[in-house]
Design a protein around this nucleic acid. Structure first.
Length: 234
DNA sequence: TACCAGGTCCTCG
DNA sequence: CGAGGACATGGT
């Protein structure tokens, strides 16, 4: 199992090259960009958290528009998200879809950080990974994938992010059978717990799911063609 | 036109 | 537990 997962990772990496996740806005700019620089500022870490919430069941392009609006209004800021009226916030993030829900979720998240950590994310991120995960999951609007995205891409701790693409690709490959988030994650956690590798692996999965292992797969030129059982009936 | 996109919550059985 | 519905915009 480990060998298979490592082989797939190696093949994806050589096919697509490093992806530079998570895209974040650079100082003085408005648009999130992919970069190999892993040294995130506090503001960028907060932007990753916001992006993780905004991208729930939504394409990144739409989320990007919402993040640009937040940047224009200097709203990558816990206190400002707390003070802006929810309907105004919803209007700004409209392109990301589910804007009423997501406006509420951003406010709930920021209020939690404000009330429990004086608005300082880095205090929360000092927690051990299991405790951190439990706490994030206790916040309404943060489920498995969002929590793990925050842990991996904002706190930069080693946890594997499972998403719909992961399930699709690895069930087609014949590597996973179950549909349970934590059980799938456990398979990947048998690998060496390396934040840099988990970061890259998930990003490559997303890229592969967009290029070849799409809803109706294009198997002819797929780089994983020879590894695949083509269980595409799900 | 209809379907899909880097999910989560709530309700019901 | 798990299935099913609600939440919503923009691209193809």
């Amino acid at each position: 199992m480990n060998d298979k997962l490592i082989k797939i990772y190696t093949e994806l990496l050589s096919s697509y090259n490093p992806q530079g996740w998570w895209p974040v806005t650079q100082a003085g700019e408005l648009i999130p960009v992919y970069s190999q620089n892993n040294n995130l500022t506090k503001k960028q870490k907060l932007e990753v958290c916001f992006g993780a919430i905004l991208t729930q069941n939504t394409s990144w392009k739409n989320v990007e528009k919402a993040i640009i609006e937040l940047n224009k209004n200097d709203l990558i800021d816990i206190d400002k998200i707390i003070s802006i009226p929810q309907n105004e916030l919803a209007e700004l993030i409209k392109p990301s879809g589910y804007f009423n829900q997501k406006a509420e979720r951003l406010k709930i998240f920021c209020t939690h950080i404000k009330n429990n950590y004086c608005g300082d994310l880095s205090i929360l991120f000092k927690k051990e990974i299991g405790e951190l995960r439990e706490e994030l999951l206790s916040i309404k609007g943060i489920g498995n994938e969002t929590a793990d995205s925050i842990i991996l891409y904002s706190a930069q701790k080693p946890i594997f992010v499972v998403d719909a693409y992961t399930k699709r690709i690895f069930s087609r490959l014949g590597i996973i059978k179950e549909d349970n988030y934590v059980k799938i994650q456990e398979q990947f956690h048998k690998l060496k717990k390396d934040a840099k590798m988990f970061n890259e692996y998930h990003a490559l999965i997303v890229e592969h799911a967009k290029r070849y292992c799409i809803k109706k797969p294009e198997c002819d030129d797929c780089p994983l063609n020879t590894d695949c059982e083509k269980n595409c009936d799900n």
